[in-house]
Nucleic acid binder design. Structure first.
Ligand SMILES: [Mn+2]
Ligand SMILES: [Mn+2]
Ligand SMILES: [Mn+2]
Ligand SMILES: [Mn+2]
Lengths: 220, 220
DNA sequence: ATATTATTTTAGACAAAACTAAAAAATTGT
DNA sequence: ACAATTTTTTAGTTTTGTCTAAAATAATAT
């Protein structure tokens, strides 16, 4: 598989991760920063290799084979991200661009030994799960802050947006994975949310609330 | 710079590492496992970018700019090799193929942090020196066993051939970098050499003797 | 129901990096 | 010196991944 094919497969995976329906040509073009015509060309090639299911004008979805390829690339991407943060002291907002390259290195031995070296991590620095060799991973039950009612309490376990800009914003505001938050108030007008933290309470905008995942702690 | 351009630059560097003269098109083709016509095409592109000095039919040599590019790639290659052996427990005969890919990852921060993580190593697992950020490295005074007279003694510090086949041969015969050898006898007929080791003495063929470097220890 | 708009595909072109076959230049042997 | 051989370059293709412009299809709105 070429680097470009791998990136397309990964893009299709991410675009169908939640809705599971077939993915539109335009959506892939936007994600990949290419033109729709380029996408059509590539889709045909991937269909030829039976990595995707494709019928003209009907959008595209990953075949089982394609899904496994996607998960193998995602596994590599996230393991490298853990390496960069844990071993090389990168900050979590810097690792994505580098992992985007490292994920394409071809060596099964390398990725297995890296996994072992890192102590078989289950999640990457952004809280995303790391599939095992066979593409199996546990998607934890986590909810966006914006989806939770007042009174909910949980541990921050992931980000929805992992852009450098958002991650830097979180650092600046001393919000980290592992922090425990409680939802104190939801402002109807702008859907901003007031949450309590160890060091007091802060108000976060709707945009922030839709990009932070909590793992709920049942409080009786 | 593309991956392919980088590999050509590195090939030219290695071909002119010792003789320093201009390198022949055919020699590059052989090294790169491509055809001479492909080499000519690439050389023109590299000359266009002033990475090489080129006059038709006159061979090619690296410009100062090209030399620095070569050394930066070699630095990355060797640092990754150290990482693979020291941190991931690869054996020294397995690392080259993987480093051949890793050397092309583009991130200055990555290579600097990797260097620090490894403790700023001076040589790679095959005894080859690692250039610093500015392309500076100390080439140690080392001699091939085949170039030394009877009675010489030294520490094995490098290999001339770093193919997996040769390195596995050395492992099998319990020859490692760091071992101290003394040259006991040189057989005129086939130029095989008898050397003494900690565990006794062994005879090595001319082919082996021309591929092991010793750093001489003066014995008075 | 059909006209308008949006999406997707096709057709044709281009740059990168390789190839084969043929031509040109340099080297070698007598 | 010059014919034969070797090396290098040129010319013309191919494959991969991109593009623009135009055509085809699907979706939407009146
Ligand atoms: Mn990528
Ligand atoms: Mn991540
Ligand atoms: Mn390489
Ligand atoms: Mn090496």
């Amino acid at each position: 598989m070429t680097l470009s094919e791998e990136d397309y497969i990964k893009a299709i995976y991410h675009l169908s991760e939640f809705n599971s329906k077939s993915v539109a040509t335009n959506a892939i073009a936007e994600q990949m920063k290419t033109k729709p015509s380029s996408v059509t060309d590539m889709i045909k090639k991937l269909a030829e290799k039976s990595l995707v299911n494709y019928k003209k004008y009907q959008g595209v979805s990953l075949s089982e084979k394609g899904r496994l390829v996607a998960l193998s690339i995602i596994r590599k991407h996230r393991l490298w991200e853990v390496f960069l943060v844990d071993k090389l002291n990168f900050s979590w907002d810097e690792v994505h661009v580098v992992a985007e390259q490292l994920e394409h290195i071809k060596s099964d031995a390398l990725i297995d030994k890296l996994d072992a070296h890192l102590g078989f991590p289950k999640v990457d620095p952004h809280g995303d799960p790391i599939p095992n060799k066979d593409g199996v991973f546990t998607k934890s039950v986590k909810k966006l802050i914006s989806e939770l009612p007042v009174g909910s309490q949980g541990v921050c376990v992931g980000v929805n947006d992992s852009s450098a800009a958002f991650l830097k914003f979180l650092d600046k505001n001393k919000i980290s994975l592992g922090d425990t938050f409680k939802i104190l108030e939801i402002e109807e007008f702008d859907e901003s949310v007031t949450i309590s933290t160890r060091s007091g309470s802060i108000r976060i905008s709707k945009q922030i609330a839709t990009n932070l995942f909590l793992e709920i702690v049942d409080v009786e």
